[in-house]
């Protein structure tokens, strides 16, 4: 239990020191800001495509941050320590996933609705938008860490991890952006609240399977 909390602390501290969250947020904002340059400043059009745009940019930002989950450990040889520490690798992976969620994805998701203002989303919708993104955020970390662990140790692991994780992100994208577009159309809470539970249950499944798969992936490398 001690090593679990220590690992979470250490990873969050590392993310903070490297400003991983800031990097992801900047990338996300830039990606969203680039779209109007390509499409022209038609506010109605931007509002129509905002749900998909926000989700795609968000998932891309998370994909780019995935490489960092295991990179530092690989460089300084901490993996061998993990195996020797006596704590099950699955528990340590759970810690790493939680740290990525708190350290990178949560700040990203909480600032993402601000980008909505650039896309002409009206202010009252910002809170529900934030809620939807928040509901999807655990799944982003824990699905992502599967790919990150499987690709760890390969050169250019970021690209490979992204390639493996993208298919897994498809359900998030589908349910998340359809809920967002309902919110923006002004649908009642009952119409999109199911999507919140759906996203949370995907997150719950990922919370369980993510560390298992990540541990299996890392063992495959280290053995």
């Amino acid at each position: 239990m001690n090593s679990f909390i220590a690992l979470i602390r250490q990873d969050i501290a590392l993310a903070w020191r490297q400003n991983s969250a800031g990097l992801s947020i900047s990338f996300f904002m830039m990606a969203v800001a680039l779209i109007p340059f390509g499409l022209g400043p038609d506010l109605k059009l931007l509002r129509d495509i905002a749900p998909g745009l926000v989700w795609v940019a968000l998932l891309l930002a998370v994909l780019l941050s995935l490489e960092s989950i295991f990179q530092a450990d690989l460089e300084d040889g901490s993996f061998d320590q993990y195996l020797l520490s006596g704590t099950p690798l699955e528990i340590l992976m759970l810690a790493k996933g939680l740290a990525h969620w708190v350290g990178v994805v949560l700040p990203l998701v909480l600032t993402a609705p601000l980008a909505g203002l650039l896309l002409n989303i009206d202010t009252p919708s910002l809170l529900p938008v934030c809620l939807i993104l928040l509901a999807g955020s655990p799944a982003m970390s824990f699905l992502g860490m599967m790919g990150s662990a499987l690709a760890a140790g390969v050169s250019r692991s970021g690209l490979l991890a992204a390639l493996m994780v993208m298919p897994l992100y498809v359900p998030l994208l589908i349910f998340g952006s359809s809920a967002l577009s309902q919110i923006l159309k002004g649908a009642a809470t009952g119409d999109w609240i199911n999507a919140v539970f759906l996203l949370l249950s995907i997150g719950g499944a990922a919370l369980f399977f993510g560390p298992l798969v990540a541990a299996a992936g890392l063992r495959a490398f280290l053995k």
Partner: peptide, 10 residues
């Protein structure tokens, strides 16, 4: 081993 884990997840 790594590809097998991916196959099972997929």
């Amino acid at each position: 081993r790594v590809s097998s884990v991916l196959a099972i997840v997929g």
